[in-house]
C-alpha cells in the first residue's frame, strides 16, 4: 500500500533578531495508512514546526520552508497555493492542537463551528450539516449532543473542548490527523479518555495519525511508529516496541532512562541527560547531541553521522554505529558504569 504522507529532507528556518533559527534541518519520514506515528522531542526540537510545515502553516515573512518535499498520497503539497492548501487542510488533513481553550472560536456556537467545516468542504446544506455535526458530537462521546450544539466553548470543560476539536478534525473523514500535544493541557483521567477516543476512531475509520508529544507515556500508549527529534533532526525512528526495547541512539536511551518506571525502586537514581540542548542559531556542525553525550567521540562534534538501519524500519543517526567505530558495546557499558 502507498504511504499516506511522505516528508523528505524538510528544512524550515525562522528569521529572528539574532539571525536565522534553523528549526528543522532535514527531516524525512513516512506515514502508512491506519498507522500512528509519534514525533517525540523536547521543547524547541522542531516537532511542532514540522507539523506546521506539513500543513503549509509556516508563515512568511519570518518563517520559510527552505527545502524539502511533502507529499500527501503522492500529491506534492509544498508547491500549492493558499486556496488549494485550505482545501487540503480540514478536508484531507485534520488538525488537533494542544490548547483546546484557544483553538475554538469563543464567539461561535460549538455546533456552528463543526457545521462550518462540513458546509465548506463537503458542500452540505445547512440542515444536513447540522445533523452530521450532531452525529459527530455523539461519535466523540459528548452526551446530549443536540443541546451541546447550541452551546458556546466557555460552557464546556477542557476535556469536552478537546473532544469538540477532535470532532471538527474528523468532520470530513480526513486521511491524516495531525495532533500536536493533544492531551498536554488535560488532567490524567481526561488524557486517558482522549487517547482512548483517538485509538477507537482510528480503528473504526482507518485514519492515520501524527502525534506530536514530549511524553513517552503517550507514545507507549498510542503509537505504532516513533521518530525522536533533537535540535531539528530526527535522530532515531522506527517501530515503537523496537525502540523501547532496543534504543540505538544515546539520546533516545537517555530519554527512556530519565523517566522513572513504576517498578523502579526509589534507591535507584534516575539517570538524567546532563547539559541542555544546543542553540539553533548556530547549530553544531556534527551531531547536535555530541556535547551532552556520554559516548561522544572526536568525529561526533565535526561531522553529522549518517543513518544506520537496524531493521526494515528502524534507523538511527549515530557515529557509534559506524563500522569504523569499534567496541560500541564496551563504550556503552563503560558509560553506564560511570552513572552507577
Amino acid at each position: 500500500m502507498t504511504n499516506v504522507l511522505e516528508v523528505e529532507d524538510l528544512h524550515v528556518s525562522f528569521r529572528a533578531y539574532g539571525g536565522e533559527i534553523q528549526a528543522v534541518r532535514g527531516v524525512s519520514f513516512a506515514v502508512r495508512p491506519g498507522e500512528t506515528l509519534a514525533i517525540v522531542g523536547e521543547s524547541g526540537c522542531g516537532k511542532s514546526v514540522t507539523a506546521r510545515a506539513i500543513l503549509g502553516m509556516v508563515k512568511a515573512p519570518r518563517g520559510r520552508v527552505k527545502k524539502g518535499s511533502v507529499r500527501l498520497q503522492g500529491r506534492e503539497l509544498s508547491c500549492l497555493g493558499k486556496k488549494e492548501l485550505q482545501q487540503v487542510r480540514g478536508a484531507q488533513i485534520g488538525m488537533i492542537f494542544q490548547d483546546p481553550m484557544t483553538s475554538l472560536n469563543p464567539t461561535m456556537k460549538i455546533g456552528t463551528q463543526i457545521a462550518e467545516v462540513l458546509i465548506k468542504h463537503q458542500k452540505l446544506a445547512k440542515k444536513q450539516a447540522r445533523e452530521k455535526a450532531i452525529e459527530l458530537l455523539a461519535a466523540v462521546g459528548i452526551p446530549e449532543p443536540a443541546r451541546r450544539y447550541e452551546q458556546y466553548p466557555h460552557e464546556c470543560s477542557g476535556g469536552m473542548r478537546q473532544r469538540i476539536v477532535i470532532a471538527i478534525a474528523l468532520a470530513c473523514d480526513p486521511e491524516l490527523i495531525i495532533a500536536d500535544e493533544p492531551t498536554t493541557a488535560l488532567d490524567v483521567t481526561i488524557q486517558a479518555q482522549i487517547l482512548a477516543l483517538l485509538n477507537d476512531l482510528q480503528r473504526t475509520k482507518g485514519t492515520s495519525i501524527i502525534m506530536i508529544t514530549h511524553d513517552l507515556g503517550v507514545v507507549a500508549e498510542v503509537a505504532d511508529q516513533m521518530a525522536v527529534m533533537y535540535a531539528g533532526i530526527i535522530v532515531e525512528q522506527g517501530p515503537v516496541e523496537e525502540i523501547f526495547d532496543n534504543p540505538q541512539h544515546p539520546y533516545t536511551k537517555g530519554l527512556l532512562q530519565s523517566v522513572p518506571r513504576l517498578d523502579q525502586p526509589s534507591e535507584e537514581r534516575l539517570i538524567p541527560i546532563q547539559g541542555a540542548p544546543p542553540d539553533l542559531f548556530a547549530p553544531p556542525a556534527g551531531c547536535p547531541f555530541a556535547a551532552r553525550c556520554d559516548h561522544a567521540m572526536e568525529v561526533c562534534a565535526q561531522y553529522m553521522p549518517k543513518s544506520t538501519a537496524f531493521s526494515a524500519q528502524h534507523q538511527a543517526k549515530c557515529w557509534l554505529h559506524d563500522r569504523r567505530a569499534h567496541r560500541v558495546e564496551e563504550l556503552v557499558s563503560a558509560g553506564r558504569e560511570q552513572h552507577v
Binding site: V188, D215, G217, A220, E241, F244, R261
Partner: peptide
Amino acid sequence: TMPVSHPK
C-alpha cells in the same frame, strides 16, 4: 489512567 511504561 496512567500511561503504560512500555508499548507491550
